[in-house]
Simulated scan of single mutants.
Amino acid sequence: MENRVTELFNIKYPIVQAGMVWNSGWRLASAASNAGILGVLGAGSMYPEVLREHIIKCKKATQNPFAVNVPMLYPDIDKLMAIIVEEGVKIVFTSAGNPKTWTKWLQDKGIKVVHVVSSVKFALKAQEAGVDAIVAEGFEAGGHNGRDETTTLTLIPMVKEKVEIPIIAAGGIATGNAMLATMILGADGVQIGSRFVASVESSAHQKFKQAVVDVKEGDTQLTLKELGPVRLIKNDFYTQVQELYKMSPTINDLKVLLGKGRAKKGMFEGDLDGGELEIGQIAGLIHDIKPVEEIVAEIISDFQKAKQLAVSL
């Protein structure tokens, strides 16, 4: 299954396992890479030396390429980038910031750079910054998200119309037929997050994994746009947020309610009531917790079947 994404990353299948905070440690990233896709470490939930530890363990667990995702809104970015270079990581995904900040610096050191965007405007800015590829993410996605609520179905063809670099579709993708659909719309590959949260190798707490499996349609919502849009499972913390909105809160009011470590509390420590439970809308289609190898095999099998069906229509 060779195309611009498989060639860019030297992988078997054009699939990226998203670098998600508190979910994407070395076990998940190495398992993904061993399954023929691009595994990604989520540096957003790691102190610099913790990231180094995960990179070292990932290198020992796989001989295949893997990447690090670095959300630029977090502190110690310079330290994280230095460790990435020192440990010989060859692919970096940047997000939540200006792609011009680090792209050339990384590329000068032989590192491929991919930037995550949620609009045509930012896709063009990323291309102008010289990134090697972009992840175009619709608002169905979990975690931090775009403010405009543009769906993947509309975002991908609009981005395809304007940019020339490889496009990786994200948001609402967990199956092979969804992968095919986005590629027909113009994507060169896909990034999948939520499905890999509910994997054996995910570093998420078992209670959070089960909560993802239990999600039904309508159980998630995009909120906290003033701080940084995030899609959450509707739990007690989410209810507190909605009650606060009824009082026309200031940004500081929202920050006080959010506090610190809320995402860790929910996804990593398993507090399903008071934690911030980030997941995509597609969780309503996730019904079990499986090893990464089985998830990838199922996605590829479904992709091939959907492709054959499309040809026969």
Rank of each mutant, 00 (worst) to 15 (best):
G88A: 08
P99A: 12
S95E: 01
G110W: 00
E161L: 04
K79T: 05
L124D: 09
G172A: 06
W105S: 14
Q107S: 11
G146R: 11
F93E: 12
W105G: 05
A123S: 15
L80Y: 02
T154W: 06
A129T: 01
I156E: 02
I84N: 07
N98P: 00
I83S: 10
A178S: 15
I167T: 04
E164P: 00
I168H: 06
V117A: 07
V135H: 02
K79D: 15
K162E: 10
V117K: 13
L153Q: 14
I134V: 15
S118A: 15
V92R: 09
V89M: 07
T151W: 03
G110L: 07
S118T: 15
N177P: 03
E137A: 10
W105R: 15
K112A: 10
K79S: 13
D78N: 11
E86T: 06
K79C: 05
V159N: 00
P166D: 13
A82Y: 04
E149G: 01
I91T: 13
T154G: 05
K121D: 09
V159R: 07
K104C: 00
G176V: 10
A178Y: 12
G97Q: 08
A174P: 04
G88R: 11
E87R: 09
A133I: 07
V135T: 08
V163Q: 15
S119I: 05
T150K: 04
K121G: 02
G143H: 01
K100W: 02
W105T: 11
I173F: 06
Q107I: 00
K162D: 03
K90N: 13
V120Q: 12
T152L: 08
D78V: 08
T152P: 07
G146M: 02
K112I: 00
F93M: 04
L180K: 12
V120I: 13
K104H: 06
L180N: 11
V163G: 12
I165P: 05
I91A: 08
G110F: 05
E161C: 07
V120S: 12
E87C: 04
A96Y: 01
V163A: 13
F139I: 04
I134L: 09
I134C: 06
A178R: 13
H115F: 00
L155M: 10
T175I: 10
V89S: 08
L155R: 04
V159P: 04
S95K: 01
G97V: 02
P99G: 10
K125C: 06
R147S: 15
G97K: 00
E86Q: 10
I167C: 10
Q107F: 03
V120W: 06
I156A: 11
L124F: 03
V131R: 10
A170W: 01
V113E: 05
K100H: 14
A141F: 02
E137W: 07
L106I: 03
A136D: 05
K109D: 07
A174Y: 12
D148K: 12
